[in-house]
Write a protein that binds this DNA or RNA. Structure first.
Lengths: 211, 211
DNA sequence: AATTGTTTACGAATAATTTCACAAAAGGTA
DNA sequence: TACCTTTTGTGAAATTATTCGTAAACAATT
């Protein structure tokens, strides 16, 4: 274990492993070998061990891993042993879809503030949270200790909203718009493209390599 | 150009490039260099050229690429020059979120059938499409020429729904459940995890490599 | 206590992807 | 026409990620 730079693919897989381990816990299985995890999530056993090796030694030779123990290690590594406060900016189709989706809360991401500029939306509730005017952004971020912002506004407002999120002090931003956003170095930015997966599927269905 | 196996990362980037080119078309820019695309989407110019090189020679040395021309090449490569008929199985929180999201239709993916087993949902409309009982799956897939299925049911039903989709003749499946699904070799399967991006963010925010 | 069968951890080997660097092609200019 | 500038296309090099192969560790059994 040396752990300087962890490959993104490794982190993604850890997230997958953790979900699989959770499933095993429900099935009351308490020990598992890398090969079983591998089969369970569709990678190689060497991959599983290599991924884990970035962070330490969690297993017992000849035995495997204690499910609960490994699970909590992974959750800790992923930063999911705490509750994250999240602000959602843009309560349109995509934004409200995300707000309604339970998968985030299940993993500790609590959308505690939802903002928009549309007067028709402001004041209505989304999954129990009142949609407010973007003007209150700074106040809400500070009072709720919000660290993560989800940007689901129209492309043209994306950079503006992002700048305001940064000024207000969030540390991470998940950008759902198809725009490249500029943020200072200390801010973690990730871009999400919902339809890219469908397009990958479309490519694989259609592209039967000419030549 | 040899193009046997195209890296997945390349296909993802093509999708990004295509969106950026579309933006350029709206701005009525008609020629662009790889370096500009690169800056626009946040990769290196060599990367852009390498990615394109898998599929042919689209540019003019000393000049760059004709925006519209490259755009339509990319859309063709990605299989987005046609309309895809899509079936959505599972009209719960996540399913309805996806059905309401416009981004899919914008890229040619038309969700023309939505199924569920919940009597309370069946008969109601989602984005203009009536939710029907899963019993009609086979009929709808055939009559609408559906090739792609989105699985947004609870984890426990996922494999069952998948099997039925395969039997009914879809060629591609996008799995939104946290389960590893088994499909025959000729079926293209992709797994999507909505919260994995948030978790990657969480990891990057939290993990300041001990040792 | 010795033996056997597993399974991890990890360095080494291999494979895949990205970046580099430059010749070749095109357009513009004199 | 010759020359200059720009930018592509692409092998080669560098980097990054994955797989392989095996020693070491452990449990179970005799």
């Amino acid at each position: 274990m040396k752990a300087y730079k962890i490959p993104e693919a490794t982190v993604m897989r850890l997230s997958i492993y953790s979900r699989y381990l959770h499933q095993l816990m429900e099935e009351e299985i308490d020990t598992i070998a890398s090969g079983d995890i591998a089969r369970g999530v569709g990678v190689s056993s060497a991959q599983v061990r290599k991924d884990l090796a970035y962070f330490g030694e969690f297993g017992t030779r000849g035995v495997g891993y204690k499910v609960e123990e490994l699970y909590s290690h992974l959750m800790k590594i992923l930063g999911l042993d705490k509750r994250w406060s999240v602000i959602l900016v843009g309560a349109g189709k995509l934004g409200s879809a995300l707000a309604l989706y339970h998968g985030f809360l299940d993993r500790g991401f609590h959308i505690c503030t939802v903002l928009d500029i549309d007067e028709k939306l402001i004041g209505t509730k989304l999954n129990g949270v009142i949609i407010e005017n973007v003007d209150v952004m700074n106040a809400r971020i500070i009072e709720n200790n919000i660290e993560i912002g989800l940007v689901t506004v129209p492309a043209l407002s994306a950079q503006n909203v992002t700048d305001r999120l940064v000024e207000s002090g969030v540390s991470g931003i998940l950008n759902f718009t198809p725009r490249v956003l500029k943020v200072p170095n200390h801010i973690i930015l990730r871009n999400v493209d919902l339809s890219v997966n469908l397009e990958l599927l479309s490519f694989n269905l259609g592209y039967h390599y000419k030549r």
